[in-house]
Every structure is written in C-alpha cells, then in structure tokens.
Design a protein around this nucleic acid. Structure first.
Lengths: 195, 195
DNA sequence: TGCGCTATGTTTGCAGTGTTCACATGACGA
DNA sequence: TCGTCATGTGAACACTGCAAACATAGCGCA
C-alpha cells in the first residue's frame, strides 16, 4: 500500500507522495530507483518526470529534507552550547543522525551538491551557520572562521569514518563516547581561552 | 587504443589491464561501468567476471590501490612531523589527494568497506596507523587513541566538505591555506603539551 | 610429438534502469 | 458546455550487471 490511495486517474499530490515513499525506502535501506519509487507509489514509471527533471532532482529534494531534519535534530531539546562538553553533544547528535539514517546521510553529503537546487543549498548553509555559531559561542576569542570549519570537519569526518566502519565501534553508546573523547582531546587544551 | 594490445584470443594479463583502464576512466571523470571498462580494454563484457566476482570486487581493488597511493603521497618527501605546522602538511596532502582524484577518493571512502577484501582492509589500516603515529609523535602526552581518531576525522571531514563544495574555496592554494588554518586553530592551544 | 585438461575469453540472453515521446484523462476556467 | 493544459499512461530505446553455454589455446604429461 502506498502513502496515499488514489481514487482517480490524477493523483492529487504525487510530488509529496513520491518524496515520502522514497524517504521510506531510504530509511528501510532498500535499493533506490526511480522506477521502484514510482511502483511503490502506485504510479507509472514515467510519472515522476512530471515533478522531477531527473533522478538527481529527486535525490536533491530528499537531501534538502534530510538537511532540515538534521538541523532539527541538532537543535531539539538543546540550548546553544557554552562548554566543550556541551559542544561535544552536538557532535554526538550529528554522528548519531548519520548512523541512524545512513543512506540519507550519503545522499546529503556523498555527492557534489548541485547548486541548481536553491532549497538544498540553503539548508546546507543553515547547518553550516548553526555549527559555526555553536563553536564561536564556546570559543569567542579564537579565529572564528577557521575554528568553525574545523569543528564541522571534525564531526563530519567522525560521521563518515563510523559510517564506513573504519573505526572500531560496536554499540551506539560506544560511538557516542568515542565522539566525546575526540572532542575533548582536541578542544580540551583550548579550555583556557574559553568564556 | 587500450592499455595492452592483444595478439591472440587470450590477453596475457587482463586483470591488470582492467585495473589500469578503470583507474584511467576514474581519473578522467568518466562514468564508470564494468561494460565500459571491458570495452575500453578491448574485451567482451563478460570477460571481467573471470577476474572479479562482481562490480564491487573491481571497485574494492581500485580502492585498495587508491589507499596505497594515498599513503605514498602522505609519506613522499616527508619525515614524520614533529610540529603542528608539519602535521598540518599531512592534512594538506590528504585533502589535495581527495581533490585531485575525487572519483577515486569516493570509491575509497564513499561506501562501506567490504571486509572480504583483505588487501583493501590492510591498506586502510595502514593509513590509519600512519596518521595515528604522526599525531602521537607531535602530541606524546595526550590521549593517543582519541587524538588520533580526531586527527583523522579532521582531515577526512575537510576533504569531504571541500569535495562536496560545502566550503568556499576557489584555488588549490586557497584550500591548502584553509586546511592549515583549521589545523592551527584546533591544535594551537595544545602546543603547550607538545614535545 | 600429440592429447586433453583447464584457465580464460566470447556469445547470447535476461531482468532491471533512466529517460523520452506520443497519447489519454480529466479538473477548471471561459 | 466546451476546450485547454497540467498531469497521468504505455511503449520504446539504450544502457547496465550478471549468468550460462560455448570456444580457444596454453601447458603438463604420455
């Protein structure tokens, strides 16, 4: 059964239905294809092309949605951090997102961001700004741009290394602890300059 | 013309020829398919299956080769670092590799490392050890495991963020300078505990 | 020298994919 | 009421990964 029953020839809101169907397949780890998405939505293989220029366009829309979800995860139940320990929890949430929704995370970051999709570009920029603000809030005295880039790179690298099983880590708790350790190891000595 | 002329029915060393052909296509940024590789090597579409179980096996072999190349790049003309500045040059070389050979880099790190391929696993472990040794050499007094992971994650994240154009950076020099800045910003405060 | 085993290559074919084009449908405004 | 046009369908093309049956020839052994 698809996300939205269809009484007639026309669907109603096929664009949205395709997105939720596709997202569900990603979530379930199923191999992803335009035809499979269309099939799952109960629609012909050519129908998606009325709403997305090509496969890449669908993927970009999914990526944009994922970026918004990630931002929501990062800000949920959380104030802006003021200590390194609180900053580390940002990293934990980031890596946790990557491990909970691996296929989506790879869509978001595993290919070149096509600048065509304004939605996606904006969502990515918002993540960037959020992380930058968090880091600058904790280290007001240091080179803000360089440190913000470094902080993002750190969580991003941790996420990918765990995703690709390049690091030994069995449980989710163990991963979280490893992220905390890395944050503390890198940033601890900077505690001196901290607010 | 392919990498190796073929006078007779049998090829001689098709396995090696397929690898160099495929690597060349990656390098040129061409879309990558088993059939295309076979065509380019002047051989039928089914021939590669005598040497590689499936497409993934070919990709793993390429990834292993890439990992060895990366390690060679990291160690070429370089002593083990003793200062943060020298450590940063490791990061520059890592990111430079990713930007010079993007398709290969994605093959190496953009998908889950299949533990079947011993060659690939070993090559990945060697990169890990090299980076860990470099970092521990510079910071002998800190938590070695956590700092090694953090250091790898930092360069890895920088590489991916640049690859995906999530960071503003026009020229290669500019990228290198950004990597140096990030390294210094993160590690500078630790200089106190440094050898 | 000649024979046959086996590694390696070929041909053919299947199922699945992205994409396009001509055509069908039906919701909505004139 | 009727025509228009956004949105759906079906059929087709070129491509992919992969498998099975068949062809070739290099190499060990009588």
């Amino acid at each position: 059964m698809s996300t939205s029953a269809r009484a007639s020839y026309h669907h109603g809101d096929l664009r949205a239905a395709l997105l939720t169907t596709a997202m569900g397949m990603l979530e379930r780890g199923e191999p992803f294809s335009l035809r499979a998405v269309a099939r799952d939505a109960g629609v012909s293989a050519a129908a998606p092309y009325r709403h997305f220029a090509d496969r890449e366009a669908l993927e970009s829309a999914l990526a944009a949605e994922g970026l918004r979800d990630l931002k929501a995860d990062l800000t949920r139940d959380r104030e802006m951090p003021t200590t390194v320990a609180e900053l580390a929890e940002f990293g934990v949430a980031y890596v946790d997102f990557a491990l909970r929704r691996p296929a989506l995370f790879r869509l978001m970051f595993g290919n070149e961001c096509d600048t065509e999709n304004d939605d996606r570009v904006r969502a990515a920029a918002e993540i960037h700004e959020l992380l930058a603000a968090a880091i600058i809030g904790v280290f007001p005295d240091s080179d803000p741009v360089a440190l913000a880039v470094a902080g993002w790179a750190l969580v991003h690298g941790l996420a990918f290394l765990h995703l690709d099983r390049k690091l030994t880590s069995s449980s989710a708790d163990e991963v979280a602890q490893q992220v905390r350790s890395s944050f503390l190891a890198v940033f601890s000595a900077q505690g001196a300059t901290q607010k």
